[in-house]
Each structure stands twice: as C-alpha cells, then as structure tokens.
Amino acid sequence: MESDVQMSGTRERKRVMGDMRTGYGEALAELGSINKDVVVVGADTTQSLKTSLFGHKFPERFFNIGIAESNAVSIAAGLALAGKIAFVSTYAAFIPGKCVDQIRNAIAYPNLNVKIVASHAGLSVGPDGASHQQVEDIATMRAIPNMRVLAPADEYSTRRLVFTMAESSGPCYMRLARPKSPLLYTNGDVRFAIGSSNILRDGNDVAIIACGLMVSEALDAADTLAEEGISCRVIDMYSIKPIDSDAILKAARDTGAVVTAEEHNIFGGLGSAVAEVVCEHNPCMMKRIGVKDTFGESGEHDELLAKYGLKARDIVGAVREVVRAKKR
C-alpha cells in the first residue's frame, strides 16, 4: 500500500478541478493509438461521454449504436468474442441500468473482454432527477460473477484506470460522475491496480473509506476532524470488486473504527463490500454514508448531497459517532 501519494491541501485541492469524462475520452483516444484492438461502442451520448474523441481519430473502430443500450452492450460482446478490447459507454442510468441481463449473459458469463464505462452515476446528474440518478449500479454489477467494479475519484485516476482496465483481460465496470471535481492526484508514480486502493491521508483514530466524488468530501471531513484532534485515515477505494481486503483489515485493526462514503444506495455498494470484509475478519465500529434506500429528485448536485446526507459534514458526524462508540 502506497502512502506517499502527493496530495494537495484542501484549499489548493478545490482550486484545481478536473473532469472525469475528459479523462476518460482523452485516455481512450490515447489507448486507441497504442492498441489497435481497442474498439469503442457508444449509445448516442458519445459527445457527452467524450468517446467522440476516439471516434474522430479512429472512425473505423467506433460504433454509435444509437438509443439501444442492450444492443450496444451485446454488440460489444460480439466484438470482444472476435478478439477486440471493447469499451462501451453511456450514462449509468442506461448502462448498466437498462441492460443488466445482457451484461450478465453476453459479457460476464462468457467472461469477455468488455469494459463498461458509465458516466453520470450517483446523484451527480442533478437536475435531471431520479430517473437518471443511478444509485444501484455498484450493487448490480458487484453481484455478477466475473465482473470487476471500479469507481475513480477524479480525472487523473479515471485516466489511469482506463489503461489499467485495458491491460487486464475480462469484464470490468467503471462508474464516473458528471460534474467537474477537485483533482486529488498529482503524482504520476501512484499505482492504480484492480483490487488495490490508495491511502490519501494517514491517521489512527478512524478510517474513512470512500469512492468516487465522496473521496473529496472525505478529505474535507478529515480536515475538519483534525481540528478536533481526531486523526483520520482516508482511503480511496477505487476498486470495489475485487476489493482491497488487506487495506480494509489493516485500517480496521489500526483504527478500530470505519466510516464508508459513496454516492450510491447504502445497500449493496461500497459500504456493504467493506462491511463484508470487516464483519467476517475484524469486526469493529462501522457507519455507512450513502443514499438511504430512496430515490433522488431534481436539484443541483451539491443541494442533493446535502439533502441526502452525503456532505463532508455528514461524514464528520458519522466519524464522531464511531469514535465515541469505540471509546465506550
């Protein structure tokens, strides 16, 4: 586990913003020039997902299947059957939202080399409302054998994970958020591997294990808690399946208290995955921050995070609780 990740302090962090979709699109276009086997399948949202960057560079390897997600996913499976590394992308509400059967039977069961990358996951699609706010994707994808699940925290890690996925044969799902978000990584030496994680801040009193945009909230929470004398370890758990059990257990042993944070239903997501490891091997105090089994609504992303209890202050509250309980 690397703990020497260069990470900027809160104020600086907020100044340098990135965009996961730009990271995805640019990395994909770069990957396309390195590897001729890479093909990209879209479902009408290719400008938004920025896979169009790949499409402009390699039109013969780019297939826009239109508003037909099940078809797009299955065509990607066929391309992979013929030896291609097939990336297929749209909004998470539609892939995996609309085609779990095709992902299960056409991709995961035959263990094909298809990389599903979905944007606008969680509440981050904001004003579009509940129909578009996919808060179940980690749970559905995690429950399918052979499928790996990734949730990068910023543009830089998104970029890196595109290459990581391509190097590892087999199905993989990566969820991205819509809004621009603080760049958390600046060091090119950071390791990104499927099944691994990164400690962004070390601490002894509690471990905050987060994924996606919630990693940034977790870092903010850690800043606040530091002022109260609570020392937080913040782990970017970008690989949710397989999950970095060693890092989780070490954190549970070192701190005795774990808080998870994700922009996903509290059922079946990162919190559940961490709880499975903690409960089976090293039970300790635990709290999960996530959407509490409810549908969202229209609103700005930040307003929604506040209403559904996913802000840094909610993490702060959960940490105080577990730290208090631990002392009893």
């Binding site: 093909v39 078809n71 299955s74 065509i75 066929g78 059957l81 291609k84 097939a86 056409a106």
Partner: peptide
C-alpha cells in the same frame, strides 16, 4: 446483436 459484433470485427 452479438452476431453484429462478430461481423463488424
């Protein structure tokens, strides 16, 4: 759909 993927490849 899978057949389409093979044919495209």
């Amino acid at each position: 759909s899978v057949g389409i993927g093979l044919a495209l490849a």
